[in-house]
């Protein structure tokens, strides 16, 4: 008897309601649209995530690699009940957040990957993700971990998340924190913003194409700089090191 192996490998998704898109004004004055991505958009997202795998700062490499794998897992039907939200400015990809539902009452936050920094885009996208779990899916809590100190400050400290250290998180089995509905309600007025419905033209622009980020985090100037000055994007240290080396050679 023939066996349809794909049926065995492919988990069955539950029919969860979609995330209703919203928009907001950023500190820069630009408009950010946050909406749910579709599976068909995964190949485009992968192209924009891939370069970040090589950005060795603030754990972009780790987060991008894991997001890449999670997007692939979703695309190939190897993740159950996963969803992906994208944040866009004039179509340009500014952030990706994703998660999944463990049960009807418990969510699992996976990643927040900001492609533009300094404007709370990652924080806005994370808030949208929590909004999806608590307000749209009606879950009681979301399990959260942070892979970088920045994430810890944004999630654990700003939302004052509860410890769930007896529950391993799906990301590496590390102890979980939890955002409960009560905590979310407390943070709502300060941290959760956005307007609905999104004006048609804005939403159409967002759906039209996911454009590459115009100013994504980039790797250091070169490998020598990477070892000495991860954040020194202009390569000041590198330039001066080489000058010092040249001077030593001249002296010799």
């Amino acid at each position: 008897m023939a066996v349809d192996l794909e049926k065995i490998l492919r988990p069955v998704d539950h029919p969860y309601p979609p995330y209703p898109a919203k928009y907001m004004t950023l500190a820069s004055g630009e408009t950010l649209v946050i909406r749910q991505a579709t599976r068909d958009e995964v190949p485009t997202l992968l192209k924009h995530v891939a370069p970040l795998v090589f950005v060795e700062r603030d754990y972009y490499d780790l987060v991008a690699a894991r997001v890449y794998a999670e997007l692939l897992g979703w695309y190939h039907y190897r993740m159950q009940d996963e969803y992906v939200l994208v944040a866009q400015i004039d179509g340009e990809l500014a952030a990706i957040v994703n998660g999944r539902s463990v049960t009807g009452k418990q969510g699992m936050s996976l990643h927040t990957l900001a492609m533009r920094r300094g404007l709370r885009i990652g924080a806005h996208a994370f808030a949208a993700k929590m909004e999806y779990h608590i307000d749209i899916l009606g879950q009681d809590e979301v399990l959260v971990v942070a892979e970088s100190p920045i994430g810890f400050r944004r999630w654990m400290i700003e939302y004052q998340l509860e410890e769930r250290f007896d529950t391993p998180h799906e990301l590496g089995g590390v102890p979980s924190y939890a955002l409960t509905k009560e905590l979310f309600d407390r943070a709502r007025s300060k941290l959760v913003v956005g307007r609905r419905p999104v004006p048609e033209d804005l939403l159409a622009k967002a759906h039209e194409a996911i454009l590459p980020p115009s100013d994504p985090p980039t790797p250091p100037a070169d490998l020598l700089a990477a070892t000495r000055a991860k954040y020194d994007l202009t390569g000041t240290a590198l330039i001066l090191q080489r000058w010092a080396q040249d001077r030593s050679a001249d002296d010799a």
């Binding site: 907001m24 950023l26 500190a27 820069s28 004055g29 630009e30 300094g118 404007l119 913003v193 307007r195």
Partner: peptide, 22 residues
């Protein structure tokens, strides 16, 4: 050589409904 390389606007940091969060 500057630390901050993100432009900001009065609308975004003062006037918009999201300004208090931004």
């Amino acid at each position: 050589d500057a630390h901050l390389h993100q432009p900001i606007s009065l609308e975004g940091i003062l006037d918009s409904p999201e300004a208090m969060t931004n």
